[in-house]
Simulated scan of single mutants.
Amino acid sequence: MTKTLHHRACHLCEAICGLTIETTEVEGRVQITSIKGDAQDTFSRGHICPKAVALQDIQNDPDRLRQPMRRVGREWQPIEWEDAFNLVAERLAAIQKRHGQNAVAVYQGNPSVHNYGLMTHSNYFLGLLKTRNRFSATSVDQLPHHLTSHLMYGHGLLLPIPDIDHTDFMLILGGNPLASNGSIMTVPDVEKRLKAIQARGGKVVVVDPRRSETAAMADQHLFVRPGGDAALLFGLLNTLFAEGLTRDSHLPVDGLEEVRAAVASFTAEAMSPLCAVPAEQIRQLARDFAAAPTAVCYGRMGVSTQAFGTLCHWVVQLINLVTGNLDRVGGALCTEPAVDLVASTSGGHFNL
């Protein structure tokens, strides 16, 4: 019996936690005997969630598919890899020739979009298909993020994320990072990182219609009317302008005066009945956010999957911008990833 230790990463979600996997080989058959968090991983620092631990069960499951299967009638029959590739290529080409390019649709789930191999190579394949019917988890919960970035920054994947490890004030809307591991924030062990904000004298504020796990540990929880987040955000932005709480940004900015004029009537008093948050609480939240040495506003799925999702994310970006917290340590940062999809892909397109 031979035991081997492997250092890998879990790509079931964007946290990409480091793993230490122990395997045992007996009579030529390799089995996973344990999966633990990798304490030497500088990003996840030993943290993993139950999904990563369950990879052992998936890998060792006797019913796991180990080769391609082809459906013949009502039965599934094994097929060789080369035959499978040829069959798929032939069928895709035939379907598109007969029905057009968009007759083929693609769905990419979390394990594929967070896999470096597919991340770096799937776009070439999808480009050859030339279908507009491409779907993923993004289609359900985060397209407003991408549309906002597309319109504001010129690329749908240019997504500023909270610098949670250095911020002094974190405002969370429509997100429950304790359950999601910090979606579109890429933060393993997010609970410790949120508590670290509090430990260094900072503040965590959650806006949510329900008392979520994250709201329960926050310094302040504001109950907002479901779907009322845009009104609250506009009330915050209006207060920042009206009370002179803005800071100059080092970034080149176009159209800010037009924004100021556009939100002039969206006062906290006017927005309060729409979001069910008292006007004075809206104003005080804006003041606290602006007064913090560094701050970041973070909106997630709850402010995406609603009638005004894109407006919400636009104002989230504006709040970070006008308080001088966009592209700033402790604020919202544009990352420098190992695989730079912004540099290697087009900016995306939307049917506007």
Rank of each mutant, 00 (worst) to 15 (best):
V259K: 03
L126Y: 14
H47A: 15
L237R: 07
T23S: 12
G330F: 07
A103M: 07
N60S: 13
K36Y: 01
Q59R: 12
L194T: 05
G244E: 06
A230R: 04
L194G: 04
L12H: 06
G37Q: 05
A343W: 01
L55W: 00
L240S: 07
G331K: 06
A261D: 15
W81R: 11
I184W: 04
G299N: 05
M119A: 14
G331I: 09
H121M: 06
C297I: 07
S112W: 04
D327A: 14
V263A: 06
V316G: 01
M119Y: 00
G174Y: 01
A54E: 14
D340S: 06
R29A: 03
N133L: 15
L232K: 08
G18P: 02
S344L: 07
F308W: 12
G100I: 12
F223L: 13
N181I: 13
T2F: 12
A290P: 00
P111V: 12
A242R: 05
T239Q: 07
R225T: 09
Q317P: 00
Q142E: 11
S272Y: 02
D41S: 01
Q284P: 03
K130V: 10
A295E: 07
D61G: 05
F234G: 01
E191C: 12
R70K: 13
N238F: 09
H11N: 02
L178I: 10
S149H: 10
F266N: 11
H99I: 03
E243C: 05
R300M: 14
V296W: 00
C312Q: 05
D288E: 15
T4P: 01
N238I: 06
N115V: 01
G228P: 08
N123E: 08
L233S: 03
G154F: 12
R193Y: 03
T246K: 01
D288Y: 02
G299I: 02
Q56L: 14
S136G: 15
A270E: 15
G127H: 07
F135G: 11
A264K: 15
P111Q: 02
E25C: 04
M69Q: 15
T345C: 05
S183L: 15
I16V: 13
M185E: 12
G174Q: 01
L151E: 08
M301Y: 04
K97G: 14
L333K: 11
D327T: 10
N351I: 11
A307V: 07
R210W: 00
K195H: 11
C275I: 03
C297E: 03
L256W: 02
V263F: 07
L232F: 15
M69I: 13
G109F: 00
S183Q: 10
L326G: 03
V224H: 02
S136I: 09
L143Y: 11
H99T: 04
C13F: 02
L173D: 05
L143N: 14
D57R: 12
E75M: 13
A291N: 08
L326E: 06
A39Q: 12
S136T: 11
A103N: 09
S183E: 13
E243Q: 14
S304Y: 06
L129V: 11
D165G: 10
M1T: 08
S183K: 09
P337G: 07
S149V: 04
N325D: 08
A286P: 00
N60M: 12
V342Y: 04
T214I: 04
T335D: 06
